[in-house]
Nucleic acid binder design. Structure first.
Lengths: 341, 341
DNA sequence: GTGAAAGCGCTAACAT
DNA sequence: ATGTTAGCGCTTTCAC
């Protein structure tokens, strides 16, 4: 889909050579002002757009960044996390004239094949990867193939750049909140523990409990998978050991817990206090039943893209991506490899 | 990002010419079986992938479909509608070896410029457009430029292909439900009325009210914009005219209404019955307060992409996209232009 | 059935 | 400052 106008054609109409037109389009020097103006004029009149494929065949760049969401993330699609993330990434891309190719590794095709399709073929200048497990083979491939990429979510490996929120700190705040409310039997519904955010939020729970000198028995910790069902199952277990407060590592799971608690004839927050986690505006509807931790997902997306475009030498990304702190949750940015924080 | 292997290189290693390798890759005839096998062998060994840009420079096809979401859809990002839609589109694309380019017209760049960037340059073979208003200039451009495209959402114009749910019917069912419950003063919070789904759901409300011989005064109809805030404002107006039931054209607005109703000291559904609209699993958490209409968004996405790929002569799309009926809401597909229903 | 050769539309190195 | 030329890696006639 494109007009069949070519550089050649524009050159002819402007009475110059292809090179000159090319220079004008690419804002290169060595074109006299009047000529430049005349060429722009023609370009505007004709609505000419250079052919992307032809251009990238020679420049070896496509101005397309990929967004890869691995695994069957149906569960993750239950909340607006990805919408917000994509919104942020898009914002950055639009601002810099980049395009975004979205790849969900969910279809009938396996992840290895998807990887080949997406990354091979040279469609992409770089990649943003969301939601990875520890030691994800995808990451290994990207490193091996020397693909510029940025992760959304912490990844404990020197060579990997990423953007993340301070999951440990945020979880600590949440649990600390419950402890200050006077609760001593505080349970937690964790995310999958092979995922960074899952593990980190549990660590935050542990730290807060310890800080308040509260005992952390195994029965107070139930692993979930971010789904509502897992939240319900976990809540049943927690109720059976008599907790008076629950920190759920995601709002979705908190909602599941809420259901179970109410079904048990208990009131929230009077009988059981509940804190969720995520930026899910809808959760506000459940107030005062549910308290939640906000995470700046949209910004995380924008910053991830900023970082990536920086890697690609996107001309003047200018300012390094800012270190943003929002609400109780803050961002950690690993700017250059090795410089963790 | 791609290996620097070329056709030439493969040809050399296989002891054949470029043409032959090309034929093998593209599954063309006129290659003897043993040769074909040997070439595949080398390709597999080396992990060769043809360079996408070079290929589309000559074929004039990219195997990329665009997904355009016009306007600042922040409000629409509050619910998982787009996540599900993208999931469906992706499913189809993955199955047919197509890629997906996501364009949110939200950045600092205006829609006209975004259109040029995205559609010009020949990046895309076709486009899926979501969430359009009546007489959207975007649609006019696409028609004018002869871009193959499919809309998600009804569009009253002969030349446009689209996929949609039966909004009128679904709304009718929702309101009918309330009427059968014995309510006579039923109000509705509509979506934006310059959007098809908004207008259609209102029409469904009207039809159901009429069928039950219930008076429809203007005060029973309040226009919202799918946002929670608008739902709250609308609910206040409706409560002030003494409705006992509300049909909200989106779950988000229903949640807003729920808040307001509860703040007014009323119980849901005992004092005021509430029905929402959308496929928002989280809304289930609000049961029994909130009843909602499910829409098969994921399927809508998949079907839209099916239709588009059909337009692109994607070789054997085989079966025409099925006419799916799910839950109370059903799909209407305009398969070929002119053949509505 | 296979190879040779001509481009697709663009950029970039080299002349002028 | 501008034009000429040689490809980028692939598909596709057209010979053989």
């Amino acid at each position: 889909v494109s007009s069949s106008l070519t550089l050649e054609e524009i050159a002819k109409r402007a009475g110059v050579s292809r090179s000159t037109v090319s220079r004008v389009i690419n804002d290169q020097p060595n074109v006299r002002a009047p000529v430049r103006e005349r060429v722009w004029q023609i370009i505007r009149e004709t609505g000419y757009q250079p052919h992307a494929a032809a251009r990238s065949l020679v420049t070896r760049r496509t101005r397309i960044v990929g967004v890869i969401i691995p695994e069957a993330v149906t569960t993750l699609f239950t909340d607006p996390f990805f919408s917000h993330l994509l919104s942020g990434i898009t914002r950055t891309c639009n601002a810099h004239g980049y395009h975004l190719m979205l790849s969900l590794f969910n279809g009938p095709v396996g992840p290895e094949e998807m990887y080949r399709r997406v990354v091979g073929g040279g469609h992409l200048d770089g990649v943003v990867v969301a939601s990875t497990r520890f030691e994800d083979p995808l990451i290994e491939h990207l490193l091996e193939d020397d693909v510029p990429f940025v992760l959304v979510g912490r990844y404990p490996e020197e060579r990997v750049r990423y953007v993340d929120i301070d999951n440990v700190g945020a979880a600590r705040i949440a649990v600390d909140h419950l402890a200050r409310l006077g609760h001593s039997r505080i349970g937690t519904i964790t995310g999958p523990l092979n995922v960074c955010s899952g593990a980190d939020r549990l660590e935050g729970y542990r730290q807060a409990m310890e800080a308040h000198r509260l005992p952390v028995s195994d029965s107070l910790i139930v692993e979930g998978d971010f789904s509502e069902e897992s939240g319900m199952a976990a809540a049943r277990r927690l109720l059976s050991v008599g907790v008076t407060a629950i920190f759920a590592a995601s709002d979705i799971m908190a909602v599941g817990a809420l259901k179970v608690i109410r079904e048990a004839g208990l009131r929230v927050p009077q009988d059981v206090a509940l804190v969720g986690f995520d930026d899910m505006p809808i959760a506000a509807a459940l107030q005062p039943a549910l308290t939640t931790v906000r995470q700046p997902v949209e910004q995380m997306g924008a910053m991830a893209a900023d970082l990536l475009l920086g890697l690609l030498d996107c001309p003047p990304v200018g300012r390094p991506p800012p270190q943003v702190l929002i609400l109780p949750t803050k961002l950690i940015v690993r700017e250059s490899c090795g410089a963790l924080q």
